[in-house]
Design a protein around this nucleic acid. Structure first.
Lengths: 202, 202, 202, 202
DNA sequence: GATGAATGAGGTTTCATTCAT
DNA sequence: TATGAATGAAACCTCATTCAT
C-alpha cells in the first residue's frame, strides 16, 4: 500500500492492460505481465500485494483518471443537458481512444472473482455520484420529473451507456463509438424529462 | 447434441444452477455438480460435451423458457406501450421469482470466459429481437422517433433493465424488484417517444 | 481419511521413504515421490490430504508396525530385564534392517515443521507406553528404585536409545548397531536398579 | 570468517535467536532478522556468508559460552561424581535460564537441513569431550565399569539429558527443569558404575 | 448407459542473495 | 561500510476430462 508509485508501478499497470487485452484474463499470468513490464516476477510483489491487487489497482488508476477527466470537463458546463452530454460523450470517447483499456474494463475484468468486482463497484461510486448530481440538478431546475428515483435512474443511465460500449467492444470496434453519444443523450434526456419540460422542448 | 434430453439432463442443469448459486462460479467443480445431481462425474460427459457446454445449455434452457414466457404474454397485448411494459415486468418478475437463477445469470455466469459469453449473447438474440419488434411497432405507429437507431436502442433498453436487476442481486435482493417496472417503463417510453407523441401525452 | 488403503497407498508410502532417504527431505518433491511410486502427481492427493499428510502417514504406518512387532515379541518374555532387552534389541534391529527408514526417521523427518513433529510424538506415545509398563513392572517386583519418576525415565531411556541410533545413521551406518544392545541394556538396567537389587546382583 | 566480530555481529546473532524463538525456524526470513537487528538486509552478508552461516555461528557462539561455562565450573570439582553432577546441572540450568535459546536449540534448529546439523555436531564435540573425560576419570579411578564403550556412553548420556530438555521445551516449560538434575545424575551414575563400586555405595 | 479412479498440465508467490549507489 | 530494491528459481495442488470396467 505505502510502497506504491515508483516508475515501475505504472509500467506494471500498463503492461497488465496490454497483456490482458491481448491474451484474455485467464491467460494473463503474472510472469507474462512481468515480462511485458520489463521487470522480474518478484518485482511485481514489491508493488502489489497479489495478482488480484494488480487488477484492482489497474481499475482504480485508470478509472480514477477517467472520472477526474469527466469531472473537469463538466465544470465548464452549466446546464444539466450539457453536463449529461459531456458525461456520455467523454465516457464513449475515452474508451474509444484506448481499445485495450475498453476490452479490459468491459469484458475481461468482469471475469474476475466477486471480491474484485465489489472493489470495482466502489471505484465506480464516484462516477455514479456524478450522474446523481446531474439528475438532481435537473430535478431542482424543474426540468426532470421529481418523481423519478435518482438511485434507480443512475443505474439505468449507467447500464445504458455501459451496454452500448460493451456491444461496441464485442463487435470488435467495427464502428465508431462517439457518434452514438448524440442519440444516447437525446434518449436519456427525454426519458428523464418532466411532462412540463416536454412541452417546452416541442 | 443428439445425446441430450434424458431425465438426467435436466437434473444436471438444475444441479448446476443450485451449485453455482451456492458456491459461486469459481468453486463449482464438475464433481460438485455431479454429486448434487446424483450422478457420477463421468455421466456428465454423456450429456454435455464439456463444462462450458453445461453453462451454455443452462443458459439456453433457462433463457429459452424465460423468452418464450414473455413472448406468450406479449401476444395478449396490442399497443407497443403495453407490450414494453409486459416485457419489462415479466423480465423483472421471472428473475425475482428465482433468486438462484438471478444470481447465476447476473453475476456468476459473467465470470466465465469470453467464449461462453459470446454464446450467451447468441441466446439473447431472441430476446433482443422481441425488443426490436416493439421499437419497430412504435415507430410504425408514429409514436416513436423514426430517427432512432433500433440496434442501439435495443442495447440501451436491455442494458438499463439488466443493470437494474444486477444491482438488485448485488444488494442481495434486499428490496422488491417488480415495483421498479413502472418507472422503468415510463422512462424508457419517454426516451423513445417522438416529439409529436410527446405533445400528445401532455 | 476414509479413502486410504488401496494398493497405491502403500506404494506411495514406500516411494516416499525411498525418495526422502535418497534426496533428503527438502529435495523430495511430490512429483518425485509420484514418479517413484509409478502414479500421477494428482493420484497422491486421492490418498493423502497434502504433502505433510504423506509424512505423517508414513510415520504412523512404519512406526505402527515397529511398535506392534516389539509388543508381540515382548509378550514372550516375563522378566522386566528380558523385556527391556527385547525392546532395545528390536528397536536397534528393525532400524538396522532398513537403512532408508532409519535415515528418514532419525534425520529427515525431524526437519519437518512442528505440526508434523507433534503428530509424530502422538504416534510415539504407544512406544513410550511400552517403556512405562516395563519400568512399572520393575518397580512392582522391587527391582527398580521406586523413587524414580517413570515419566522422566521413559524420556531418558528413549533419548539414550534414539541418540545411539542417530549417531549410527550420522556415521553412515559404518558399524553394526545391534551389538550395542547389550551394553545399552546393561547400562539402563543398572541405572534403574534399586539399591537392594544392586546388592543382590553382586 | 575474518569479517566477524563487529558490534553488529552480536546484534545479528541475538536477533536471530529472538526471531527464530518467536516465529519458528520456517518463518524466520533473513529480512526479519535484519529488521530485528536494526540493520539492512545486505548488511547481514557483510558478517555472514549466508543464512546457514548465521545459524551455525549462532550455535557456535551460544554453545561456546555454554561449554566454557561448564568447563569453568567443573574445574572446581575433583570427583567424577561431582563433575557429572555439575555438567548435568549446568546443562539444565543454562537452558532453563534462557527460554528463547532453549527453544531454538532443542526444536527450531533441528528443522534445518542436514548440512547445518553436521556442523552443529562438530560444535558439540567439545561438550562430548567433556563427558568423555568424566567417563575416563571414572574408569581410571576404578569406579566405572572399564568394559563400557566411552564413545557410546557419551552418546547415551547426551541423548538422555537432551531428551529431558526437549520434553521440557515441548511441554512449554510448564515445570522446573533443574530439579530433575538429581535423579538424572543418580541414574546415569548408577548405570555407569562398576560392580565393585555398586557394593561400596550400598 | 453408468461409473469413479486416475490423470497431469499449469500458475502464484516466497525469499535468499546480489550489487549499484 | 551500509543500504534495500531488484532478482528469479522453484514447487504444491486443483480439477476438467478420460476410459476400463
Amino acid at each position: 500500500m505505502g510502497k506504491k508509485r515508483g516508475p515501475k508501478y505504472d509500467k506494471i499497470i500498463d503492461a497488465a492492460v496490454k497483456v490482458i487485452a491481448e491474451n484474455g484474463y485467464h491467460h494473463s499470468q503474472v510472469s507474462k505481465i512481468a515480462k511485458e513490464a520489463g521487470v522480474a516476477d518478484g518485482t511485481i510483489y514489491l508493488y502489489f500485494k497479489n495478482k488480484e491487487d494488480i487488477l484492482i489497482s489497474l481499475f482504480e488508476e485508470k478509472m480514477g483518471i477517467f472520472v477526474e477527466f469527466i469531472e473537469e470537463e463538466i465544470k465548464n458546463a452549466t446546464s444539466h443537458e450539457e453536463k449529461l452530454f459531456i458525461l456520455i460523450n467523454m465516457h464513449l470517447a475515452q474508451l474509444e481512444k484506448d481499445h485495450d483499456l475498453a476490452l479490459v474494463t468491459q469484458l475481461e475484468l468482469r471475469q474476475s472473482n466477486i471480491s474484485i468486482r465489489i472493489k470495482v463497484n466502489e471505484v465506480l461510486k464516484n462516477y455514479l455520484g456524478l450522474i446523481d448530481s446531474i439528475i438532481e440538478q435537473g430535478k431542482e431546475e424543474g426540468k426532470f420529473d421529481t418523481d423519478i428515483d435518482t438511485r434507480m435512474m443512475r443505474q439505468v443511465i449507467f447500464g445504458a451507456i455501459d451496454e452500448v460500449v460493451t456491444n461496441w467492444v464485442m463487435k470488435e470496434h467495427r464502428y465508431d463509438l462517439t457518434p452514438l453519444a448524440d442519440s444516447l443523450h437525446k434518449f436519456l434526456l427525454k426519458g428523464l424529462q418532466s411532462p412540463q419540460r416536454m412541452e417546452e422542448t416541442t
